[in-house]
């Protein structure tokens, strides 16, 4: 693992952070509720996610000891997200400089970074739960913003809130379609695969469980056969999907 592969995302994170802090960018992003919730906050989450790659393997290993299956990171990120979903937090961050500074620090560090350190550790079920909850949150908030006659943020108008509601419904719908597509045709890693492997950094692909093997061996899968060696049987049992290679080697 060279520094070069690591430094591009980190540079990108720094660049995104600086650009989003520039007054000429920040002002329009905070001028509407829609731009703040669907533009500024996701960018800051991405900054934290990318910045995670600056961490050394030693730090990662240390964090991992306290973050089995990504549970601790998930709790931290959820709490951070809950805080930044409060209408009064959005209001305060546009009118109080101290809260604004808090936003620029806490959204990357308390949401983006923990998600980056935890996502690959999480099992299939937890990931599914989070994505389903994300979709549900988009729909709940979107619906609320569409129909509420009351402005939730003092700094933003009702038309802005209703427009954001529409966008949130669209985002939730898009996520749902993507999730459905992934469930039907996508590939998943099992929790055992999500466990750390020796010397692997968290962003490197986990060992695939889509096993390629000679067609002659693959065809034996449905009928576990004594003709397979014990090691081959064990490998096969861990495969989600067996991909036969054209010709037996």
């Amino acid at each position: 693992m060279t520094g070069g592969r690591r430094s591009f995302p980190v540079l990108l994170a720094a660049l995104l952070m600086l650009v989003s802090m520039a007054p000429a960018v920040r002002r329009p992003l905070e001028a509407s509720m829609t731009a703040q919730m669907l533009g500024q906050l996701p960018v800051l989450v991405a900054v934290g996610w990318l910045a995670a790659r600056s961490l050394s393997a030693r730090v990662l290993a240390r964090v991992e000891r306290w973050n089995r299956s990504g549970i601790s990171g998930l709790i931290l990120a959820t709490a951070g997200a809950a805080f930044w979903m409060l209408p009064r937090s959005l209001d305060a961050s546009t009118s109080q400089p101290l809260v604004a500074a808090g936003k620029y620090l806490s959204v990357p560090l308390l949401i983006g970074l923990p998600i980056a350190l935890s996502w690959r550790r999480m099992g299939f079920v937890i990931r599914g739960l989070i994505l389903a909850e994300l979709v549900a949150t988009c729909f709940r908030l979107g619906w609320l913003y569409r129909i509420s006659p009351i402005r939730l943020c003092s700094n933003y108008g009702l038309d802005d809130q209703q427009r954001l509601g529409g966008y949130l419904l669209a985002v939730g719908g898009g996520l749902l379609v993507w999730l459905g597509w992934k469930l039907l045709w996508g590939r998943f890693e099992t929790p055992s695969a999500a466990r750390p492997q020796e010397g692997r950094r968290y962003w490197e692909p986990v060992q695939t469980l889509h096993c390629r093997m000679p067609a002659s061996v693959a065809s034996l899968r449905s009928a576990p056969s004594r003709s397979l060696e014990r090691k081959e049987r064990a490998t096969m049992a861990r495969c989600i999907e067996v991909i036969p290679t054209a010709r037996s080697a």
Binding site: N67, I75, D91, A92, S154, N155
Partner: peptide, 30 residues
């Protein structure tokens, strides 16, 4: 360790959110 860290984070988050919402009474500026 993860259970300990999670418990501490849960408590901390609950306290933080309670402080941020006046004891879960006020979610909007108004």
């Amino acid at each position: 360790r993860t259970a300990l860290a999670s418990a501490a984070l849960l408590l901390g988050s609950a306290a933080g959110l309670a402080a941020a919402t006046d004891g879960f009474a006020a979610f909007t500026t108004e």
